[in-house]
Amino acid sequence: MGEELKRILGIAIPLIIVCIISGVALTASYDLTKGRIDAVEQEKITESLSIIFPGASFTEMNDYYSATMGGEVIGYAFIAEGKGYSSTIRTMVGFYPNGTISRIHVVSQSETPGLGTMIAEPDFTNQFSGKRIEDVRLSQDGGVIDAITGATISSRAITDTVRERAGVVMNETR
């Protein structure tokens, strides 16, 4: 019995030690990078807000931002989150009080490199500018947005999320 216990502990203890050391190393690097990662994420949001309404100042409401310039509300911005082809696509969307999109900007996504990732390129996102919220659909679904060849799922995901969320936020702002 004593021999057997020794043998088992001889195998188990090294594994336990490896796990403990890994745990400590992971905790340390998580703590070291946490502040930095939060800053990076916050920076992304501020940066995309200023892309959508350049020069405006923003006040955070419940789940959207209202953009003001010279004391006057010029529009609203919010983050639309939706399931893409292989990741969650987060998009910053800005629209004017009259219901047209000002701009959209993809904050984060991990779609297929070189294919689905093209939804973040200006060639695609510029199509949204100046369109009515209800017209934001792929052209094959009867809308005005042209999908990216080979990445219809990603294109449809971002288009539908933007339209649906914009409709909801639009009602909230009234």
Partner: peptide, 25 residues
């Protein structure tokens, strides 16, 4: 007997550390 679990734990830890630092920097 437990070399494969040990290797995987070590490798996975390094990958996570790389990911955290890449995300921040």
């Amino acid at each position: 007997q437990v070399r494969i679990p040990c290797f995987i734990v070590i490798i996975a830890s390094f990958v996570t550390i790389v990911e955290l630092f890449m995300h921040g920097y």
